[in-house]
Design a protein around this nucleic acid. Structure first.
Lengths: 201, 201
DNA sequence: CGAAAATTTGACATGACTCAACTGGAGTGG
DNA sequence: CCACTCCAGTTGAGTCATGTCAAATTTTCG
């Protein structure tokens, strides 16, 4: 009895996520759940490695991860810090089965709900409504990536850092500072100096 | 007779565009066409102004445009050069009816097929297959925006310029050089210097 | 507690910007 | 069709933002 209720809870957040896009019946949600796999991973696990095919899209129930690109000199560029209620994956790799452009690494112990390509296609076949859910998700992701691109070009590192703190006030407590530098596209040393300058004012 | 065939031709490219996503019947295509509006615009027209609501998504049959953000200092950042077979719009503004983040300006006389919000929703209602088409379009757009973000951070301006020439070999003949600088996120003077250095080698 | 990792700090190097002056071509009105 | 203007592109000097490298310090975690 108790166990069953724990298992149901597993889907509470993702169901709420869906309902924010459009209404779903209990039955539809249950079909949806049947395509998902629940997985726990330890902190520092690599969920996806640059160059490999991205096999899953993953919804974060609990935990924290970052998606990043490693360039030829071994420098990272962080594309995303993902926490509860975010999705992880390299969309291009997942759909085209091309080598992934990014790494995904867990920053905390993390619980995921995963869906693989075949399951996702089957879900979309059975419940075409989900096309719209995923379209909306991607649209939002695109809009925020466009904003980042513009900000990165238009503003100084200090301005971008201030905007980051405002937009993600809870991220700095959860991720090391040099990852934030890598998100902003600056060196860790320079971020340290920015923080110091700010304190002085 | 002749006129009819000209009108049909109007849809040749966009139909091919769709068929590259998934198969469509003649009938489905005709329904699709019925939601589109054909429009011609003069060079230098402003299709969308930052701050206004984006009322249409526009497919380019013929012509050239750029999407750009103007920052507080009046500097432009070009997000996209769009030519034949591209779509234009500010996706966030279009769906959420929020003020547009970007300007869209035509660089050449341009022929478009446009769809507005109501028409798009009606199309999706009538032919839910289109959810998938638009999802795929947005996914591709997201993937290329992610790549741009990474390149912008990871590479020097000279490297990004070389990559741009490789990826879009025909754009430089169609758009002024300072727009390319604005796409790369550098000053026009600096692009000029990069070009000069390159010649010297 | 000790080792390893993260952060800070400072000196120096460099990529990219600004400003101003100059050149050259394209469009326009007389 | 010429003369004029205006905008795009180039060039150079000086400056600023940010990077690199190395060393010192602090924090984290086994």
């Amino acid at each position: 009895m108790k166990k069953a209720s724990v298992n149901e809870n597993r889907y509470a957040e993702i169901d709420a996520f869906l309902q924010r896009c459009m209404p779903f019946s209990e039955e539809e949600l249950e079909i949806f759940h049947s395509f998902l796999t629940y997985q726990k991973f330890k902190k520092k696990s690599i969920l996806l490695q640059q160059g490999e095919i991205c096999k899953h899209e993953s919804y974060i129930i609990k935990g924290c991860a970052r998606t990043f690109y490693t360039d030829a000199n071994g420098h990272d560029i962080t594309l995303l810090f993902a926490v509860e209620d975010y999705w992880l994956g390299d969309i291009a790799s997942f759909y085209k089965k091309t080598p992934s452009r990014f790494n995904i690494q867990l920053i905390e112990d993390t619980e995921l709900l995963q869906i693989d390509y075949e399951a996702k296609e089957a879900l979309l076949e059975q419940l075409p409504k989900f096309e719209r859910v995923f379209r909306i998700m991607v649209q939002n992701h695109l809009a925020s990536t466009q904003n980042r691109l513009v900000n990165n070009i238009a503003f100084t590192a200090a301005e971008n850092y201030a905007a980051f703190l405002k937009q993600f006030p809870n991220i700095p407590q959860r991720v090391p500072q040099h990852y934030i530098a890598s998100y902003l596209g600056i060196s860790p040393e320079f971020l340290s100096k920015i923080r110091n300058d700010k304190k002085a004012i």
